[in-house]
Simulated assay, not measured.
Amino acid sequence: MKLLAKFSARAAMDGDGVKIRRIADFGNTRFDPYLMIDELKSDDESDYMAGFPPHPHRGIETFTYIRKGGFEHKDQLGNVKQIKAGDVQWMSTGRGVVHSEMPIADSDHGLHGFQIWLNMPAKDKMRAPQYRDSSEQQAKVLTNKNGASLTPLAGDWRFADQPESTVSAIISQSGYDGKLAAQLAGNAAIADVNLAANASAKLNLSQYGAVSIYVYSGAVIATYQGVQTRFTDGQLLVVDSAELVELVAADDGAGMLVLAGDPINENIVHMGPFVMNTQQQIQQAIADYESGKFGTID
């Protein structure tokens, strides 16, 4: 596995004072089509219970995955859903969404989840918004003989040494709930991979133009600049998608998100919740929101 770059998450706050860890790259887009990964992880309700009151978005897709706890989503389209542990949610904001995300009180388990931003190609940024979630479906899990398990969150996945065994996410390119396709921007595919102590897994992701690995627990062992290095939670590794992705856990195991996709390679102008291609488009987004064109949550 060839490492191209590495990032470390930084402590940040968003919403109404929610504490998060964030990795973002709105300039160099070294993990295009992905723009940002926010991780929310705490057993202290004061870190997250104020939540994310109503706010707008334009020009991005948000992909949310909950491992512990949950939140209630509301938007101007009329969607009201509780997203709980094991669920994923995909929202293609297009020309405009106003939504809120308020955590569900769960003092026994705390909250652990991720919100991932994907850029949208210019041709799609002003299309109608779309929404999907997996709250009524159960994800399938793929395991190998080396102590690895893989839960598909978006797209179709298989281990390199088990090409005959494929698991498809509920939100995937091949279909949603067997009925509706949910084509994520940049042909994105996301999986949650867990490795037992010293376990390993191999993934062939050469069909994608970009692959990144975000470690959220334990440690992954990889060779970087000729030296075998231990990468721990809160680090993102950008790897060469043309080479076999070899995941090896340290003696305390590892949990990680694997993010694949095809770079969009377009100019980005970012301001707060808006990601467009020109400064003029950003100013128009602000004007449209302030004039009420995004709608409101009832």
Rank of each mutant, 00 (worst) to 15 (best):
K2P: 07
F7W: 03
S8C: 07
D14M: 13
G15N: 03
G17W: 14
V18S: 02
I23K: 13
N28E: 14
T29G: 02
M36C: 11
M36D: 00
L40N: 02
K41C: 10
E45V: 10
A50G: 07
G51V: 04
H55W: 10
F63S: 12
F63R: 11
F63W: 09
F71A: 15
K74I: 00
K74A: 03
D106P: 14
H109Y: 12
G110A: 05
M126G: 08
P129E: 11
Q138I: 15
L142N: 12
L142S: 13
P163K: 08
E164S: 01
V167E: 06
Y176P: 01
G178V: 15
A182D: 03
Q183L: 14
A188D: 01
A197S: 04
N198P: 05
S200Y: 00
Y208C: 07
Y208E: 13
A210E: 15
Y214M: 09
D233W: 00
L244N: 08
L244Y: 07
V248Q: 06
D252T: 03
M256S: 00
M256C: 02
G261H: 07
I264C: 04
V269S: 12
N277G: 03
Q280F: 00
Q280E: 08
F294C: 13
F294S: 05
T296N: 13
I297Q: 08
